[in-house]
């Protein structure tokens, strides 16, 4: 009887530790757990499930997130390409390095929102996201956390239906559910914090 009672108390305590917090506190708490480094780099594996496709699309590559500069997302397998998302533009380059698509944020403010959201997601800057998303989630243990973001305005809702994030001192998993029914799961593999970009990376941000 006593043991069951004790178990109940422990369970309750455990639940408390994992209890969902209020949004601002949650975002702050998660931010506290994340490493706030100027540069984060690592590898990724992305699995996309598109409606109507019998097979999922799996791609692998590496990424670099730099504070104030943006994100460079380089896919290496199976089709090489690179994507630069910065606060004022978006550039897609093909395998040969030639630009396939380019968009300026001041000409297309809608793209700016998506780009900013993406950068914020990968850097773990949830305060920036909370203006456009409802943030719910919980803290797990001493280091881990999970978050669910639901868009609040119509424009963002046209792109994302829901975003689920989890990680500890780095963001490790991102699950994007798009409004069209497609979903992507991105796993960050071996993320590493650094003080600054090396020469080749800096060039890719140009």
């Amino acid at each position: 009887m006593m043991r069951r009672h004790a178990l109940g108390v422990i369970a309750a305590l455990a639940c408390l530790a994992a209890a969902p917090l209020r949004a601002e506190d949650l975002a702050a708490a998660v931010a506290a757990r994340l490493t706030d480094a100027p540069v984060i780099r690592g590898q990724f594996e992305q699995t996309r499930r598109l409606a109507g496709f019998s097979q999922p699309l799996v791609s692998r590559g590496d990424f670099v997130v730099a504070r104030g500069r943006g994100v460079v997302w380089t896919t290496r397998q199976p089709v090489p390409s690179s994507l630069l998302v910065s606060p004022d533009r978006l550039v897609v380059r093909g395998a040969d390095g030639k630009i396939q698509q380019q968009m300026q944020a001041d000409a297309q403010p809608a793209m700016r929102i998506v780009g900013e959201s993406m950068i914020a997601m990968l850097r773990g800057d949830f305060r920036a996201l909370s203006s456009r998303f409802d943030v719910t989630g919980k803290l797990i243990g001493k280091q881990a956390w999970t978050l669910t973001l639901t868009p609040t305005d119509a424009g963002t809702r046209r792109v994302f239906a829901r975003i689920e994030l989890s990680g500890d001192q780095f963001v490790r998993n991102v699950k994007l559910e798009e409004a069209s029914g497609d979903s992507s799961v991105v796993k960050m593999i071996d993320p590493v914090a650094a003080k600054q970009l090396d020469a080749s990376e800096a060039q890719r941000f140009e």
């Binding site: 699309l57 997302w73 897609v92 409004a179």
Partner: peptide
């Protein structure tokens, strides 16, 4: 194909 394997973003 390149676009399919890229990071998914943008309204479809």
């Amino acid at each position: 194909l390149t676009r399919l394997y890229q990071f998914s973003m943008g309204p479809r």
